[in-house]
Nucleic acid binder design. Structure first.
Lengths: 214, 214
DNA sequence: TCCATAATTCAACAAGCGTTGAAAAAGGAT
DNA sequence: ATCCTTTTTCAACGCTTGTTGAATTATGGA
């Protein structure tokens, strides 16, 4: 019947997103894919290798897009670049709740093998983000004195938080379906963030999408 | 030798903070307390009951303080109230990394018995925070149109994030010992947040502590 | 000192985990 | 059909987990 490794990865992604890296059991992944757990070991070295494969699909394209964005010749404003960076994280990682929770959880817990690999892979993304922020500081678009790392942490951690929590909270708390609440939360967050870090917080942000869209 | 349940709770707190609710094993807690795992069942009904006991110690005082703060007769500005609210979460929950990760993790995962109890306990805290935000909106201190729940989520989730991540990142990324990096990050975050949500973002915030303190 | 009760440990359970080696099934070429 | 190789399943190992009932030790009052 020849199982496509793709199917296994898709199943794994589903389970990782629900349960996180440690919470996702091979048996659950196998159940999701409709096969025996041991079959996974025929196609992948082990569970972490599956996760690494999923990251490998997502991180390089994200890094490439971020590098493009950080190019100083790109004439867009720092505001628009940061907004776009946030959207890039959304489009590349929105289905990787397992990834997000792991990055966060494992960083707090200590250094193991996977986060180290992860840190290496994500370093270029971090550098690209820093380049954008430093350029914004030099050009006077960002308030002087802000620590670039804190700026990046604020923007991206909250975006991850929104991706995780808003779909759950939306219906019961805001009374909105997630597909409307998510763009609203992201837009609101970026406005708050940008006013917070900008030298001229009251300048309009014409690149933001219309919040009144149906 | 009569083991004080207090000692068990302290040991549990340590392990919960390191490993989270699911990651913390009874055997690890028992090791930390220097006793047999089964002894825990003599003093507590089960693991979740231990966790609930820890919450029981912390949430009511937090709620009481927040209620005081939300009192409309308290003449302080909305900015100072929100800053104080953030500090209250810090002082009451800074040692409860397990609590923070659980609230976040379990909310995403779905509703089980403990989070439901938790939601009930935290509802008054949520209402007090909402009261502060709505009062700020009425008085024109907060930008009109902001969703109160998003405002609260932004402020407190990032505070939790800072408590979790800054102690880890401080040394290696910002080059500071945590005891200096943490106040800096909190202060910076609140400035960003307040400029983001305030009607007059450029007004000074005289109640903030001096960032240049030794 | 004896004894009832409280406090603690021991040993084991069932369940779930990641993983493995061998057995079974399926597929393709001759 | 046969043979070889690729793919899949079965059964099990060793480990950790939460939990429990019985056995053991400590404690305090008569």
């Amino acid at each position: 019947m020849k199982m496509d490794p793709r199917t296994l990865l898709d199943a794994a992604l589903k389970v990782f997103a629900r349960e996180g890296l440690e919470g996702a059991s091979l048996r659950a992944i196998a159940r999701e894919a409709g096969c025996d757990p041991s079959l996974i070991y025929y196609h992948f070295e082990n569970k972490e290798a599956m996760f690494a494969a999923l990251l490998e699909e997502r991180i390089p394209p994200l890094v490439a897009d971020l590098r493009h964005l950080a190019n100083p010749l790109d004439p867009r404003s720092t505001a628009e670049k940061l907004w776009t960076a946030m959207q890039l994280f959304h489009t590349h990682l929105h289905d990787s709740a397992g990834f997000r929770s792991m990055v966060r959880g494992q960083i707090v817990r200590g250094v193991e093998t996977l986060p180290e690999l992860l840190a290496k892979k994500l370093l270029p993304a971090n550098l690209a983000m820093q380049a954008i922020v430093r350029r914004g500081l030099r050009r006077g678009e960002l308030r002087p004195g802000l620590h670039p790392l804190l700026v990046i942490m604020f923007l991206l951690r909250m975006e991850a938080e929104i991706l995780d929590l808003v779909p759950v909270f939306a219906q019961r708390a805001v009374g909105m379906p997630p597909e409307r609440a998510l763009p609203l939360a992201e837009r609101t967050w970026f406005e708050v963030f940008w006013r917070g870090v900008a030298t001229r917080p009251l300048d309009p942000l014409p690149f933001l999408p219309d919040p009144e869209l149906p």
